[in-house]
Design a protein around this nucleic acid. Structure first.
Lengths: 333, 333
DNA sequence: CTGAAAGCGCTTACAG
DNA sequence: CTGAAAGCGCTTACAG
């Protein structure tokens, strides 16, 4: 800026104004300044601007490390959408992988301690107490794909409840009556809500909830366990995620059951697993781009005014029909 | 800092020195300053420090958008390792997804134009001309998992050539003689090198390279095409990546061939596809953590002195034996 | 429409 | 061991 000003015999103030399109500079001069700037290969120093304004124009994206394995690309996919959404606000994303250790010992991300970010997007389940600590800190936070009953929690989630309700309805409409749910009801809020959507559909159709048809898929720590098929087989399995639907189909195949002829299987997420199984999975597609967009929007607003509050926002998913569901011919109805 | 200094009746200079462990402050006073700082919840403002020093302590990680699909988690996995490696230097990673459009039209990443990053790690194939532009720019660049013949290119790659050489050797040692290679030889440097490793192994064992055994898997734009099996079947397929090995196994299954009984299949990468097929794939594990570590180390050194040069560094992979390879019993040898 | 002054929060070199 | 001065590159009032 100094150089540009000197070359043109004007002040840096004028250059600053011209380059950031503020008014108070003549059109002609402005053109001249801009041309010279690009000729000289001038690059704005955001850090100086940042220091002046008090914004870093960075957002931290926190993902618990346990969600980042080789077979878990879901949140990484989400992260990419966040990157793109933030770009529209001229913000960058800094990925912070939260280790189990830091989570337990309440270690704040170092990018917070060094004021490298203006806010955080928390992607997926994080321990309640850790969240409380984050919320006590003086920095805006928006949660994505996850919620708890904590107060003042701004969160964007997929409409798990309603999507699973619709999915189960569609199975019932195809003639299914014995429908099992696969998932640990005490593991995450997502699984719980999906289960409740499934349950609501049963209730509405006067079908009993059979405890033997609630099949566990993971332990308290979220580690997957072997799936046990019920002694009497249902005609359809509603799985809390594609991954588990995939595993279930492997088990079914081993035991000699054919999908969808012997039993139907549906999943949730529309991730890589839904297209890697044979037959391909009927599932719910989560609207990641929209969720990322809304989360980014909320967070940027909060950066400017942290007293703003948006609460819990649900984004609708979409059922993707593939080949894992069979229509049952009903003899009597 | 101001507040701390005032409360203690000292100057900000002393506070600055104490907090960053510079000498020139008495031990006792230093303790007092540090204690008060943490009591007051003081957070360093890196931006101010950054402006003074001229470093942003951010590194841009560039990935071409075409490598970021739902079924391609490889580079996202890599990105995570980069994040962790950079952390050790107190650096953050800013992910920049390079769109096909920006790549064609030579648009520099906006995080460059705004001096948000001190350097770039380029993850995977990017067009030669785009690379040239990056190298002309006044910023250190290190390439990862990819190289060209361009000068002054500091790059960290997996030892494709040697790993595939060893892999093919091991097949030959198990009695295989008719071994096909699956991959487009003109697509990427990685595939080429893997092919050449395969070829070297054939040469050493006096086996002829049969053109019908070089099977194409993608077009010039890198889009996957249907795999055509040769009219006379080999006993083993060496695939340029797990993804294609997976696709090949689907095709083989369709045509009634059993793996590994009718033919063996090996892959490369040890990514999600290698464990999702039945049987699981014998493949080469890329040493991502080490590659990320080395790339980060080089880049940080270049940030401090951009005239440094490291050239092309190969990191060894490791063969992972699973169940997709059969030992052939040789009647006569 | 243009610019001189002050300040964002730190660090570095220098003086005491 | 401690601190006053200057400056990093920008922007925001304010004055002309």
């Amino acid at each position: 800026m100094r150089d540009i000003a000197d070359k043109l015999g004007i002040s840096v103030v004028t250059v600053s104004k011209a380059l950031s399109d503020k008014d108070g500079v003549g059109e002609e001069l402005k053109r001249k300044i801009k041309d010279l700037a690009s000729d000289m290969g001038y690059r704005l120093n955001v850090m100086a601007k940042a220091m002046k304004e008090g914004y870093s124009y960075n957002i931290g994206v926190i993902i618990a490390e346990r969600f980042t394995g080789v077979t878990q690309s879901f949140y990484q996919q989400f992260h990419q959408h966040i990157v793109k959404s933030l770009e529209e606000y001229h913000y960058s994303a800094i990925l912070h992988l939260l280790s189990a250790e830091d989570e337990e010992q309440f270690v704040m991300p170092w990018i917070y301690k060094e004021k490298k970010v203006d806010g955080f997007i928390i992607l997926g389940n994080v321990h309640k107490n850790y969240i409380e600590m984050l919320q006590r800190a003086d920095i805006p936070v928006v949660f994505l794909d996850f919620y708890t009953d904590q107060e003042r929690m701004d969160t964007v989630i997929t409409d798990n409840f309603y999507a699973m309700y619709e999915m189960t309805n569609s199975l019932i409409n195809l003639g299914h009556r014995k429908i099992a749910f696969v998932g640990n009801l005490y593991s995450t809020s997502s699984i719980q809500d999906r289960f409740l959507g499934y349950y609501k559909s049963l209730l509405e159709h006067n079908l009993k909830l059979d405890e033997r048809y609630i099949i566990n898929d993971r332990d308290e720590k979220g580690r997957f366990i072997d799936i046990q098929l019920p002694s009497e087989m249902p005609t359809a399995f509603v799985c809390n995620c594609d991954r588990i639907a995939y595993e279930l189909m492997v088990v079914l195949k081993e035991k000699g059951y054919k999908v969808p002829d012997d039993c139907s299987v549906v999943g949730f997420d529309n991730d890589i697993f839904s297209t890697l199984c044979e037959p391909k999975l009927t599932t719910v597609e989560v609207n990641m781009p929209e969720m990322a967009r809304v989360a980014a929007k909320f967070l940027i607003k909060k950066v400017k005014n942290n007293s703003l509050s948006f609460g819990r926002v649900l984004i609708k998913g979409k059922i993707v029909h593939r080949n894992s569901v069979k229509k049952l011919i009903l003899v009597n109805d």
